[in-house]
C-alpha cells in the first residue's frame, strides 16, 4: 500500500474535489451555488488531466537548448480550450439565473418549484 499511495494521490485529490462539487450541485438549492459547484467539478477534471500530462523530470513544453524531457503538451492544450468553453457556459447559466430571478423573484430551487405548483393549481381551478 505504501508504494501505491504517492503515485495515485493526484487522482484521489481530483476525485475528492470532484465529489465536493457533485454534492453541491445535487444537494444545494441555491442556483448560484450550484454553478459554483459545477465550477469546482470542472476544475477537478482539469487538475486530473494536467496531472496525467506530467512527466517526471520534465519541464514546461517550451523548446529550449539542452532540455530533453518535456511534459506532455496535449492535455495542456485540451484543458486550455476547456477552460474558455467552461467560462462561456458559466456565463450562459448565469444569464439564465438572472432571467429566472426576474420571472420568479427568487433563485432558490424549492421556492421556484412551489411557485410553479401554485401556478398549476390556479390554472386547474380556473
Amino acid at each position: 500500500m505504501s508504494d501505491v499511495f504517492p503515485g495515485l494521490l493526484n487522482y484521489w485529490i481530483a476525485i475528492v474535489l470532484m465529489m465536493v462539487g457533485f454534492y453541491i450541485v445535487i444537494a444545494q438549492g441555491n442556483l448560484i451555488k450550484k454553478i459554483v459547484g459545477l465550477n469546482i467539478f470542472q476544475v477537478a477534471v482539469f487538475v486530473f488531466y494536467i496531472s496525467m500530462g506530467k512527466v517526471k523530470g520534465g519541464t514546461a513544453p517550451i523548446l529550449g537548448e539542452g532540455i530533453d524531457v518535456y511534459s506532455n503538451p496535449l492535455p495542456h492544450f485540451l484543458i486550455l480550450t476547456a477552460i474558455v468553453v467552461g467560462v462561456a457556459t458559466t456565463s450562459l447559466a448565469l444569464a439564465l439565473i438572472v432571467r429566472i430571478n426576474t420571472s420568479f423573484g427568487t433563485i432558490e430551487e424549492d421556492e421556484i418549484l412551489e411557485l410553479e405548483h401554485a401556478d398549476d393549481a390556479k390554472e386547474e381551478t380556473s
Binding site: V47, G53, S71, I83, V87
Partner: peptide, 19 residues
C-alpha cells in the same frame, strides 16, 4: 498554482485570468 507545479504554464495563465 498547481498547474505551474505540474509544468502547465499556459493553462495556469488561462486559469488565473479567465477562471
Amino acid at each position: 498554482m498547481i498547474y505551474v507545479v505540474m509544468d502547465a504554464v499556459d493553462v495556469a495563465f488561462t486559469e488565473a485570468a479567465v477562471g
